[in-house]
Design a protein around this nucleic acid. Structure first.
Length: 216
DNA sequence: TGCCAGGGATTAG
DNA sequence: CTAATCCATGGC
């Protein structure tokens, strides 16, 4: 895993994720980006910011149908409005970011997974990118790239893949390097097809079985 | 034009 | 535990 990390870092440079202004924006983005392109999420975040709604209390005060209208461009508006409010309720009940700071990562992870609409990837994104905890995030891109490289089958359960990456990436600063590696994998996934239009040896889109990524 | 996107809940086997 | 189905909008 270290070799892959090194190659990605050389190819793309440090990504400095997550693309958000505040930890709370990371949390909102983590929910909004579920099965949705990041560009749509950026639009919705900008819209929420312009409406001065980017705080747990503001999102929670809004009627759920009204919140759904605000986030409509990110898809699943009714579903995600409910999920955002569940996350906000949990955050406020936990004493906001300050209330989370002293709690162990394992406890936070269990807490997050109990919130409606927060699954493994969303929980780990929040832990890593909002709270700087040493947890690696497995998403569709990561799964696909590692499978293309022959490192995994891609069908392993989430936890298996997470353990595998965490145990094979040797580092003295896990939070920083889990952050960078995952960001680089996403960057590569978004870049590869564009870099090689013929899709001869890189394509990471669903349905394309040609070649492998990062073969050289 | 149809396929797909940085998932998760629910239900069924 | 695995497999389907639903949720929905916008880009290419």
């Amino acid at each position: 895993m270290n070799e892959l990390y090194a190659r990605l870092l050389t190819a793309y440079g440090a990504q400095g994720w997550w693309p958000a202004e505040t930890p709370f924006e990371v949390m909102v983005g983590a929910v909004l980006t579920q099965n949705t392109t990041w560009i749509q999420v950026e639009r919705v975040i900008a819209r929420l910011r312009a409406a001065a709604l980017l705080s747990p209390a503001s999102l929670l005060d809004l009627p759920v149908d009204s919140l759904a209208e605000h986030i409509r461009p990110a898809g699943y508006p009714r579903v995600k409005a409910r999920r955002l409010q569940a996350l906000c309720a949990w955050l406020m009940a936990s004493g906001d970011l300050a209330g989370l700071a002293d709690r162990p990562t394992d406890a936070l992870r269990a807490d997050l997974l109990a919130v409606h609409g927060v699954g493994p990837e969303t929980a780990d994104s929040i832990l890593l990118y909002a709270l700087a905890r040493p947890v690696f995030v497995i998403d569709a891109y990561t799964r696909r790239i590692l499978a293309r490289l022959g490192l995994v089958t891609g069908r392993e359960p989430y936890e298996v893949l997470r353990r595998q990456v965490e145990s094979t990436l040797h580092t003295d600063d896990p939070a920083r390097d889990y952050n960078e590696l995952h960001a680089l994998l996403v960057r590569h996934a978004k870049t590869a097809c564009r870099a090689r239009p013929q899709c001869a040896a890189c394509c990471l889109r669903v349905g394309c079985s040609a070649g492998q990524a990062l073969e050289s």
